[in-house]
Structure formats: structure tokens, C-alpha cells
């Protein structure tokens, strides 16, 4: 399996707050990687750096063998990476279906009947079909999070970046979300998933990294990492505010 994503000494700070501290790591094609860490650790910032909505001050980022460090976000998406936003960013005046259609026509470059088929398939898989004609601005927070996932899937990504999409779900909903993501993975899509709901995460990923103060403090098999003392301390801290 080849490398799909590689970070090389990527650094970014907001003033004195370092959100990425010389991060170097990579993701193999087809891998599912979980990301945990306390609030403000720099997890979302890591996604911003990878997807191009935030520029690193130094270091390089490679995707599918190409140096994408200077690519704008749109180009990275068309090259095959898609994300969900932790704070949902719907196109509020457009319907749910049209939100999906933007992703399918722009991100995946699909047209006509194929774009339509992608959207209908994804809306069905993410349980949004009953809301297809609703204005995205009228959705509840949970529905908006589902729309984030749906839109990302409609771009037909090679790499899917998910930022806290399981929070607030009932057990049943969480279970079906896990199943949806597993199905996506089974089609060969690589996944990086930031999640505070650790049991959902562990049901999907085969590798886990732990971020704190912009640094990777652990990287390895999920069970081993969850058993380590340093992580348990952070994790217990997390437990308190979930």
C-alpha cells in the first residue's frame, strides 16, 4: 500500500499558541486513522492545514505523491480530499439536495444524470432523503452534521476527513453512523476521523494518533494507545466534558 498523505515538519502558530508543532506523519492508502486529543489541541487546525484553508508557516504536505502545500483548497478537493466541518457550514439558502449537488458537480466533477445519481445515493445512505427538499438553513444541528458528511461523500473523495460528527447522537444513530463510515471505507476510501466519542471511533479505525499542544504524543494501534497512561489521563479529562 502506498502513502496517500504525508506531512513533513508542518508548523503553524497563532501568536504564542502553536496548533501544529513540526508534525511529521503519513497515512497509507486505504487506512482509517483516528485522531483524539483534548479541546484546543489543534485537531481541527490539522484538518485546516491538510485541506488548505490554513497555510503552514513551514513544512510540506504531500497528497498522492504530489506536493500540495501551495495548492488552494478547491484544487485539493478536486484532487480527492473532502472534509466535514466541526461547525457545520451549509449553503443555507439552498436545499439539502442542492448542497449535495454542489459537491458532486464541483468536487467530483460529475454532470447531469451521474451527478444526480451520486447525490440520491449519498442522501439515501446518510439518511437525509426525507429532508432532500428542505432548505439547509432550516436543519437541526444533527441534520447539519449529517449534511456535512453527505456533501463530503458526494465529492467522491479518496481521503475523507471527518471532524466530530458523532457527538449528540443516540446509541442507535451512532451505530448506524459507524456502519455508514465502515461501508465508505469498504469502497477503498481512506479516512481520518477526529472524534471525542471514542467507542464509535474505535469501531472503525485501525490506527490512532493523539494530539496535544499541536504535537503528536502517541501514534499506533488503538488498543495499545488507549491502554497507555498518558492517554488515559487526557482521555479521562475528555470523559468529563463529553
Amino acid at each position: 500500500m502506498g502513502e496517500l498523505l504525508k506531512l513533513e515538519a508542518v508548523r503553524r502558530a497563532y501568536g504564542a499558541v502553536v496548533v501544529a508543532d513540526a508534525q511529521s506523519w503519513s497515512l497509507a492508502e486505504g487506512e482509517a486513522l483516528g485522531v483524539i486529543g483534548p479541546n484546543g489541541a489543534g485537531k481541527t487546525s490539522m484538518f485546516n492545514l491538510i485541506t488548505g484553508t490554513l497555510n503552514p508557516q513551514s513544512g510540506r504536505i504531500y497528497f498522492a505523491g504530489q506536493d500540495i502545500t501551495d495548492w488552494p483548497a478547491a484544487r485539493r478537493c478536486r484532487a480527492g480530499m473532502a472534509r466535514s466541518f466541526q461547525v457545520p457550514q451549509p449553503f443555507g439558502g439552498m436545499t439539502v439536495y442542492e448542497n449535495a449537488l454542489v459537491a458532486a458537480t464541483q468536487g467530483a466533477g460529475a454532470r447531469g444524470a451521474r451527478a444526480e445519481a451520486i447525490c440520491l445515493d449519498v442522501l439515501a445512505r446518510t439518511g437525509l432523503m426525507p429532508k432532500a427538499n428542505a432548505r439547509a438553513g432550516s436543519l437541526t444541528l444533527l441534520e447539519r452534521k449529517r449534511l456535512e458528511l453527505a456533501r463530503a461523500l458526494c465529492t467522491q473523495p479518496r481521503l475523507l476527513l471527518l471532524d466530530e460528527i458523532a457527538g449528540g447522537l443516540t446509541d442507535g444513530e451512532c451505530h448506524s453512523l459507524v456502519q455508514t463510515i465502515r461501508d465508505v471505507r469498504a469502497t477503498g476510501v481512506s479516512i481520518i476521523w477526529i472524534e471525542h466519542v471514542v467507542h464509535a471511533l474505535l469501531a472503525v479505525v485501525d490506527r490512532l494518533i493523539v494530539v496535544d499542544f499541536g504535537r503528536l504524543i502517541a501514534d499506533g494501534a488503538p488498543q495499545a494507545i488507549m491502554a497507555s497512561r498518558e492517554v488515559r489521563e487526557i482521555y479521562l479529562g475528555l470523559d468529563a466534558d463529553v
Binding site: 484553508t53 473532502a82 464541483q106 467530483a108 456533501r151
Partner: peptide
């Protein structure tokens, strides 16, 4: 229409 509604999402989706 997408970028009118949300520029951040628009560019992240390939526009």
C-alpha cells in the same frame, strides 16, 4: 449560489 451562501464551504468543495 453556493459561494454566495458560504465561501468557506464553497472552496472546500472544489469551487
Amino acid at each position: 449560489m453556493a459561494l454566495r451562501d458560504n465561501e468557506l464551504a464553497a472552496r472546500s468543495l472544489g469551487i
